[in-house]
Each structure stands twice: as structure tokens, then as C-alpha cells.
Simulated scan of single mutants.
Amino acid sequence: MSVKTFFKLVEIQTKLASLFPFLLGTLFAVYYFNAFDLINTLLFFIAMIIFDMTTTAINNLMDYQKAKDQGYKDEVNVIGQENIPEKRIIHLIISMLVAATFLGLMLVVRTNIILLIIGAACFFIGVFYTFGPVPISRMPLGEPISGLVMGFGIFFIAAFVNINDPTLLSLVFAEQNFILEGNMVSIIALFFVSLPTVLLIANIMLANNTCDLEEDVVNHRYTLPFYIGKKQAVQLFNVLVYLSYLVIILAVLLRLLHPILLLILGTIVPMRRNLAAYNAKQVKSETFVVSIKNIVLFSSSEVFLLALSLLFK
């Protein structure tokens, strides 16, 4: 398998959805908690990218195997396009899963065993998002679950491995007893600040499912747009974008973020142009990219401003 084919299989261009919550979680740990651990950050970054590629490969394999439309299998799915043997993909998936698990266990040793539970939950959801008799991605739960696991899960772990403070969240065993300790205010702060990425990542799945609605029905995938209708799905897409801006404003008012983050409001003008293009038509080859442009525009601005805010602490 060539590198180009591998990148198509794992859809390397979609890894921005993992990169942004990782960067934001790391920067927020530095800004809000005054904490940074380079080794833990690098270990988590590599494990996160490998696991993200694993879940995408599983997704493409499941879509190929479960497809009812032969045209989709041969011409749309990368496995049929590139004529990749299924056994080779399975071996690749297992190898990447083992590598990500090994790196995750290294992080557990370096932090706290509670990370094992959090990581296992993310692994479970990631694998069964597209695998199994009733994958999550083929249900109306795909959007909120993908948003929460990637938008908040990655953000939280990126911050957690840097903070490495038992007062944030820890699990300690003492003979037959165990102690679960955490700081509710800090955890709520992490969740609230992660919300823009939660919403924008959910929007990527929402746009994908809206554009693929007719094709999904043919292939027996009944996602959220099937249940609420295409018109309401488009309206929800817009609402989630504007809610992202509202969260930033509230986070500044609550003193979770520096006031310089309010400059992100300057991206509303190009964002409105993106939304207008998407609202006009929902075609996978033409306007799905709007959901990617939105998260790049919003989250790259947020990353830059959050990094800049470190200079004004």
C-alpha cells in the first residue's frame, strides 16, 4: 500500500478535527492551570493521531462491507477505488490499535490510573462508532457522540496529561478501598471552554450526513438528518456555529479566557459567507468542505488568540 493510498484510507485531511481540541486543551492547561509537560503532550499527540487514523480505517472498512450499492463499493469507497485487500486493512487496523494502546498505557503510568478508564471509554466509543451490528455512526447519536468524544474528550485528556495534579481528577487504591477525587469547578471549566470544538466537530458529522442523506438511506444508514429532515439539519448546522461564538463570549465574562479571545468575533463575516454557501445547497463534492472551513477558521483563530493570551497573563 502506497503512502498516498494509506492517507486516503485514513482520510488524513480530516485529522484537523483532532488537532484543534488537542492544541486548545494544551494551551488552556498552560493558561488556566499554569501547567505543561512536554513528554506527556508528545505521547498523547502521537497516540491520538494513530487512534484517529484507526477509527477512520475501521469506518471505511465497515462502510465497504455493509454497502448495499455496488456502485458505492467500487467507485466511492476508497477500498474499492484502490482495490485494497480487506485482510491488509484488518492487519493495519490491529497494528495501529496496538500502537495507540501501548502509548496510552505509557501515559497511564506517567499520570494516574483514572486515565486508563477515560482512555478505555474513548477507545470503546471510537471502535464501535463504526464497528458492530449497529454502529453509532449509523444512528442519530453520531453527531453528539463524535462532538463530545473528540471535542471534549481530546481537549480534556490534552489538559489532564499536562496538569497531572491529583486534585483535578484522580483514582487511588488503598488495599480494598479506593478514593476518587476531583475538582468539579475545574472540570466544568474544561468542559465549557471545550464546547466550541464540541459543536464544530459535531457539525462536520452533521454536514457529512446531510450531504449523504439519499445515499445513506439506500445503504441503510439512518442518521440524524433522516429523522429531523434536511431543512432542520441545515438550520441546526447554523445554530451550532453561532453557539460557538456565544460560548467564547460567556467564557470571557466568566474569566475562564482572556478578553483578547473576543477578537474571534471578527471571523463572523467570513463565517457568514461560508454558511450562506452551505445553506444554498448541500452537495458532498461542493459544500461539505464548508464544515471543515468553519472549524479551521474558528479554531485556528482561537488557538492563535489563546496562545497570544499567554503573553498577557
Rank of each mutant, 00 (worst) to 15 (best):
V3E: 03
T5S: 14
T5I: 15
L9M: 08
Q13K: 15
K15P: 02
L16K: 14
S18Y: 07
L23K: 10
L23M: 15
G25K: 10
L27I: 12
L27A: 09
N34R: 13
A35Y: 12
L38A: 14
L43C: 03
A47K: 02
M48R: 00
M48K: 01
D52Y: 01
D52L: 01
T54V: 04
I58R: 00
I58Q: 05
M62L: 12
D63I: 09
Y64D: 04
Y64L: 05
Q65M: 15
K66D: 05
D74M: 06
E75R: 06
Q81P: 02
I84M: 06
I84C: 08
P85W: 11
P85K: 08
K87N: 12
I89T: 05
I89S: 05
S95V: 02
S95F: 10
S95A: 12
M96D: 01
M96T: 00
L97D: 02
L97H: 00
A100S: 14
T101A: 13
F102Q: 08
G104A: 03
L107F: 06
R110F: 11
I114Q: 03
G119L: 02
F124H: 09
I125Q: 03
I136K: 03
I145H: 07
L148C: 03
G151R: 09
F152Q: 09
A159D: 06
F160R: 01
I163V: 15
I163G: 05
D165R: 06
D165Q: 07
D165K: 05
L168F: 12
L168E: 04
S170W: 09
L171Y: 08
F173N: 02
N183I: 10
A189H: 14
A189G: 12
F191A: 09
F192V: 13
V193E: 01
P196W: 12
V198D: 11
L200Q: 05
I204D: 00
M205C: 11
L206W: 02
L206D: 01
T210Y: 10
E215A: 15
N219Q: 09
L224Y: 09
I228V: 07
G229K: 09
K231R: 14
Q235L: 04
L236G: 04
L236P: 05
L246T: 07
I248D: 09
L250Y: 11
A251N: 06
L253F: 13
L263V: 15
I264N: 14
T267G: 06
V269H: 13
V269C: 03
R273T: 10
Y278Q: 01
N279E: 13
K281Y: 11
Q282R: 06
V283D: 11
V283E: 10
T287H: 02
V289G: 00
V290A: 07
N294R: 13
V296E: 05
L297T: 15
S300G: 11
S300C: 14
E302V: 10
L306V: 09
L306G: 12
L306I: 03
A307P: 06
S309P: 02
L310N: 04
L310R: 07
K313I: 14
